[in-house]
Amino acid sequence: MADDNNAPVFQIQRVYLKDLSLEQPNSPQILLEQAQPQVDINLNLAAQPVADGVYEVSVTATVTTKVNDKTLFLVEAKQAGIFEIRNIPDEQLQPIIGIACPQIVYPYLRAIVSDVCTRAGFPPVVLAEVNFQAMYEAQQQQQAAGGANLN
């Protein structure tokens, strides 16, 4: 079977949980509080080459829940994937890494965060759907506006 060495390749090599942390620094006293908790959610994306044509893309969620300015619980989870991406034009490579790969990894992250909250004895925190294309385009516009001193 002949293999075309120049054919575009996009394959998921592995999706895995890279890091997970749960903290309840004020337990058990804070568990007696009756106030409604305030939930703050932050997402971060990262990508790095692992080998020639192989990239690790990760999405990290940090969920901080507070009651009266005291931390009820803090969950930080980093879900990652290893992707083989070859023979893709440079102008298409960054959108694949910044949009397609996080879209594959993110549902796993959502499930992990929800599960950890439940196992910690709290109602599940369900991360909202994310439009990674809109995030990527906004980031590109920011970089273009910041402009000249970028390499």
Results as ranks from 00 to 15, higher is better:
residue 94 Q to V: 12
residue 52 D to H: 08
residue 35 A to M: 07
residue 143 Q to N: 07
residue 120 A to E: 02
residue 65 T to H: 01
residue 53 G to C: 11
residue 49 P to D: 08
residue 60 T to R: 12
residue 30 I to Q: 05
residue 57 V to G: 13
residue 129 E to L: 01
residue 93 L to K: 14
residue 111 A to H: 13
residue 120 A to K: 02
residue 64 T to H: 06
residue 88 I to R: 05
residue 32 L to W: 06
residue 79 Q to H: 09
residue 112 I to M: 07
residue 80 A to C: 07
residue 60 T to A: 08
residue 137 E to Y: 01
residue 137 E to G: 02
residue 74 L to T: 02
residue 116 V to M: 07
residue 100 A to D: 12
residue 148 A to Y: 10
residue 85 I to W: 13
residue 145 A to L: 13
residue 143 Q to Y: 08
residue 76 E to G: 02
residue 43 L to V: 00
residue 90 D to F: 07
residue 135 M to T: 01
residue 65 T to I: 07
residue 51 A to I: 05
residue 139 Q to S: 15
residue 144 A to N: 15
residue 133 Q to E: 10
residue 123 P to T: 14
residue 121 G to F: 09
residue 142 Q to Y: 13
residue 85 I to S: 11
residue 28 P to T: 03
residue 120 A to M: 08
residue 143 Q to R: 15
residue 47 A to M: 12
residue 80 A to Y: 10
residue 98 G to C: 09
residue 101 C to F: 05
residue 77 A to E: 04
residue 89 P to N: 08
residue 87 N to C: 06
residue 40 D to C: 00
residue 140 Q to M: 15
residue 148 A to V: 07
residue 73 F to S: 03
residue 114 S to A: 15
residue 114 S to L: 11
residue 119 R to T: 06
residue 150 L to M: 14
residue 87 N to L: 03
residue 101 C to Y: 09
residue 72 L to I: 04
residue 92 Q to N: 12
residue 119 R to D: 09
residue 70 K to Y: 01
residue 108 Y to H: 14
residue 117 C to M: 14
residue 129 E to V: 00
residue 81 G to H: 09
residue 110 R to T: 05
residue 90 D to N: 14
residue 83 F to P: 05
residue 128 A to T: 01
residue 137 E to K: 06
residue 75 V to R: 01
residue 111 A to N: 14
residue 127 L to W: 03
residue 47 A to H: 12
residue 117 C to R: 11
residue 121 G to M: 05
residue 87 N to T: 04
residue 71 T to L: 04
residue 97 I to D: 11
residue 56 E to S: 08
residue 77 A to V: 14
residue 150 L to T: 12
residue 126 V to A: 09
residue 46 A to Q: 10
residue 131 N to R: 00
residue 34 Q to C: 04
residue 34 Q to P: 02
residue 59 V to G: 06
residue 45 L to T: 06
residue 104 I to F: 13
residue 143 Q to L: 15
residue 147 G to Y: 11
residue 141 Q to N: 15
residue 125 V to N: 09
residue 110 R to G: 06
residue 68 N to Q: 09
residue 60 T to P: 08
residue 47 A to Y: 10
residue 45 L to C: 03
residue 62 T to E: 13
residue 86 R to L: 07
residue 49 P to Q: 11
residue 76 E to R: 04
residue 72 L to F: 02
residue 119 R to N: 11
residue 129 E to H: 01
residue 77 A to L: 04
residue 108 Y to A: 13
residue 111 A to L: 11
residue 119 R to I: 01
residue 112 I to T: 12
residue 115 D to S: 15
residue 28 P to K: 03
residue 48 Q to N: 11
residue 39 V to F: 03
residue 110 R to W: 06
residue 62 T to Q: 12
residue 89 P to T: 06
residue 79 Q to P: 07
residue 67 V to W: 00
residue 113 V to D: 05
residue 111 A to K: 14
residue 59 V to A: 07
residue 144 A to D: 15
residue 100 A to P: 05
residue 79 Q to G: 09
residue 128 A to L: 00
residue 75 V to E: 05
residue 103 Q to E: 14
residue 31 L to R: 10
residue 73 F to N: 04
residue 47 A to T: 11
residue 83 F to T: 08
residue 35 A to R: 10
residue 124 P to G: 02
residue 113 V to Q: 05
residue 126 V to Y: 10
residue 72 L to A: 01
residue 110 R to A: 07
residue 99 I to A: 09
residue 144 A to G: 15
residue 136 Y to V: 03
residue 145 A to Q: 15
residue 138 A to C: 09
